[in-house]
């Protein structure tokens, strides 16, 4: 006896599944975490193993302002989403813009620091193991921030054009997961580079 589609019972109404957006973003975050883990392990393994100077203590300045900005941007992002959910699109746009601004300040800080290191300290990725691991780990994180900023900007433009409405909360929220992740990674990178490694 052979079964055909006609015999199959049809869908029942009450059937809840996890949101595929969140699952997808969660999976991406797992993969990204694995990438960062490898870079962090390399960083920690090479602490103090450089054959020549400079050492982190000699050249690194702790990016306090940037860190504060980036961490606060998680809160503004959270409030933006909450506002959107409640349909307060003005507040949404304001918080969203603030998030973008804080992220931009962070990345600007990194740019200034790198400029200083490269041109004043003559310290590049080729200098020694510290340079190699420092620029790649911080650079990897910075590139994630930049991707995040691009995403933020796109949504911001859509918002200004009035294309973002409360029914888009879910999608914005999925994007916000990415931003929170980038933030959380910074905590790890910061600890590794500026506390443990210094």
């Amino acid at each position: 006896m052979s079964a055909t589609e006609a015999n199959i019972p049809l869908g029942e109404a009450a059937w809840e599944l996890p949101s595929r957006g969140k699952v997808g973003m969660g999976s991406l975050i797992v993969a990204e975490s694995a990438i960062f883990t490898i870079f962090v392990v390399a960083y920690i393994f090479y602490i103090g193993k450089s054959l020549s100077g400079p050492t982190p203590r000699e050249v690194l300045r702790v990016p306090i302002v940037g860190t504060i900005c980036l961490l606060s941007s998680s809160f503004t992002m959270h409030w933006a989403i909450a506002a959107l959910r409640k349909g307060r699109s003005g507040a949404f746009r304001a918080f969203w813009f603030l998030t973008f601004l804080l992220g931009a300040i962070f990345i600007g800080g990194t740019a200034i620091e790198w400029h200083h290191l490269i041109y004043q300290e003559n310290f590049t990725i080729q200098t020694n193991l510290f340079g190699t691991t420092y620029y790649s780990l911080v650079g990897l994180h910075a590139s994630h921030v930049i991707v995040g900023l691009i995403g933020l900007a796109v949504i911001m433009i859509l918002a200004v054009l009035g294309k973002i409405r409360p029914e888009h909360t879910e999608r914005c929220e999925v994007f916000s997961l990415y931003w929170h992740f980038v933030d959380a990674v910074w905590v790890v990178v910061f600890t590794t580079v500026y506390i443990v490694g210094r």
Partner: peptide, 15 residues
């Protein structure tokens, strides 16, 4: 891999 996971967790038919 992301796609497989999202599909399997998110698109199963009722039941």
């Amino acid at each position: 891999g992301v796609n497989f996971i999202a599909t399997i967790l998110g698109l199963r038919c009722p039941g």
